[in-house]
Amino acid sequence: MKDQFKLFLSLLIVFVTFLNQDVLAWGHTGHRAVAEVADNHLTKKAKKQLQAILGDSAYLPMVSTWMDDIKSDNKYSFMYTWHFINIDEGQTFETLERNPKGDIIKTIEEMKSVLKDPSSSKRQKAQAVKILTHLVGDLHQPFHVGHASDWGGNKVKVTWFGNPSNIHRVWDSEMLGSKGLSYSEIAKYVDHATPEEVKVIQSATTVDMMQESYALCTNLYDVGDGKLGYRYLYDNYKTVEERIEYAGIRLAGILNDILG
């Protein structure tokens, strides 16, 4: 009986870990920072259209975490695989066997189609905005395009200032959290692209965005002795800021193209 309990406990830990992988890119603070940057770059027409679609919740930072907020509701469990796409070493996006349940690339394109479709209901469009706002942020977290073999970096164990962690979690929230800033403070600090730079940043396709993240995470798998702290933060925080800035600017570009 004791051995059976130990086996059950081990399986439960693995199961919970699996459920929690790849779900909280950037954490709530990072997602809201992405959405705040996007809000800064929306056209007046796009903002008006969002008001009509979202009603009282027509503020992107407040809907940006919806896909994480509902993860405990079983009726939304089918959305789990939408948060990421995993590409192992030796694979390419073109040769990858895509998940039949969907992935982040497919879902972003589908949500864009929902918003463009005049026959889509207001409810469908509202959900599409929430999903797009979240997933464009997810796509810019490098380990949401990490290796399938290590669950997008979740199995790459490290310590963060002496505390047990993994490389996915470090990039999700721990580097951002270490600064102690609000989402609006982060957005204000990172959002400094010129109009010319904005145009270039927004020219990226969804696959381009994925390829950027994949190129980054491929190098980020080298964690040395795994003891991460001040030096790692110093070396990588600028990349975190850039990914948040790019995600927000590109989200605005997508919404402006469709609604503005």
Rank of each mutant, 00 (worst) to 15 (best):
G102R: 03
F15A: 09
S72C: 12
W151M: 15
W151I: 10
E185A: 15
V145Q: 07
R250I: 07
W171Y: 10
S184V: 11
M111D: 09
V207R: 07
W26N: 01
E245I: 01
S10P: 00
Q124G: 11
L233I: 08
M67S: 11
M1L: 04
N256I: 08
D172I: 04
G152A: 13
L259C: 09
H140W: 06
T17H: 12
K47C: 06
A204D: 13
V114I: 13
Y234G: 10
G102N: 05
L24Y: 02
K6Y: 06
A25C: 09
K2H: 08
D56W: 00
K71E: 11
S120C: 08
T239R: 03
G55C: 07
G224W: 00
Y76P: 05
L181N: 07
T239C: 08
M67P: 02
K125W: 00
S173P: 00
A128N: 03
Y246K: 15
D103T: 04
D191F: 01
A204W: 01
V145S: 07
I53G: 04
Y59F: 14
S10R: 08
P61Y: 05
D39Y: 04
V240Q: 05
E174Y: 03
M210Y: 04
K238W: 14
L181I: 07
G146T: 05
G30A: 10
K6C: 09
N236D: 07
G153P: 06
K227A: 14
K45C: 03
Q141E: 15
I167M: 07
L233H: 09
E109L: 11
V158R: 03
N256T: 11
T95P: 13
R250D: 05
S173W: 01
S149A: 15
W151A: 15
V136G: 01
I201T: 05
E242N: 12
Q51E: 14
K44V: 09
L135I: 03
H144V: 04
F143D: 01
D117F: 05
A247L: 09
T92E: 14
L60N: 00
S120K: 07
P100C: 09
I244V: 13
A204C: 06
K130L: 02
A148N: 11
V34E: 00
T81S: 14
A204K: 08
F15D: 04
D225G: 13
K101R: 06
N163D: 12
